[in-house]
Design a protein around this nucleic acid. Structure first.
Lengths: 127, 127
DNA sequence: AAAGAAAACAGTAATCATTACTGATTTAAA
DNA sequence: TTTAAATCAGTAATGATTACTGTTTTCTTT
């Protein structure tokens, strides 16, 4: 127990996730940090990502090409995934039923809701 | 090119997927069919599932514990995934924005929409 | 129904994301 | 600073999915 539960590396991993809008994979976080932290281990990234998920600091938003993609923005919003290039964009929640109070679904207790649009992004359409 | 593009095994795999509401994984389909088709190969199940997905005969609905789960019911509806036991239930699309015409999302062309609720199912809550 | 060509298959090996393990290093508290 | 606990690097293991190869089945055309 302590007021500062974060090691240097743990903090850098969280910062990296929180400061990008790419909805990164574990590998992306690892590659991105490796420049500044040469002795970083991919296992450490995975371990900390799982920790952050348990603590609700980040959320998994999609599985693209077999890789889990995460989001450091935990506010309710939807996502768009391009089937072509695999990019993930935020989509502001408009009329979407993203509320966490969707419980009364026949005996289910809903914790969180994921709304994802799949299609082709602008860049891939243009080409 | 033929009027009957389905081998016996291919047809049995599709029938198995279409006749269950368990939102099965490839392994589940394989295990289920193995009783009747002892010489079935898991690779064949995967190959045909990918084929069915391309043809739009089935849709992937969730990734649960690292396994892709599919649905033979391609009509627009949402799903509930239990974080505890991994079961997947249908949720009738009520006010959800499941329409395939959600395109005008800032240059995105949306092909399909996935709405998934995550939580604890009735059975797991009771225990 | 038989023959040949194309598609599909079984079985196995390979790939790749993720997890587990172990001994060393860092952190936190006294 | 000492000591215990937490964290980590590096590597091995796991498990879902895919690729490969030689065989079998299916389809088409007689």
């Amino acid at each position: 127990m302590s007021g500062q539960n974060f090691s240097k590396k743990r903090q850098m991993i969280l910062d990296t996730i929180k400061s990008t809008d790419t909805h990164p994979s574990a590998k992306w976080v690892y590659e991105t940090l490796k420049d500044d932290v040469p002795d970083l281990s991919l296992g450490t990234v995975y371990r900390n990502i799982n920790l952050f998920k348990e603590q609700g600091l980040i959320i998994p938003v999609a599985n693209v090409d077999g890789e889990e993609r995460i989001d450091g923005d935990t506010s309710p919003h939807a996502h768009f995934v391009c089937k072509e290039c695999g990019c993930v964009y935020d989509v502001p929640a408009t009329q979407a039923p993203i509320s966490k109070e969707e419980c009364a679904l026949e005996g289910f207790c809903t914790h969180n809701t994921v709304l994802t649009y799949y299609g082709i992004c602008g860049a891939c359409t243009t080409i």
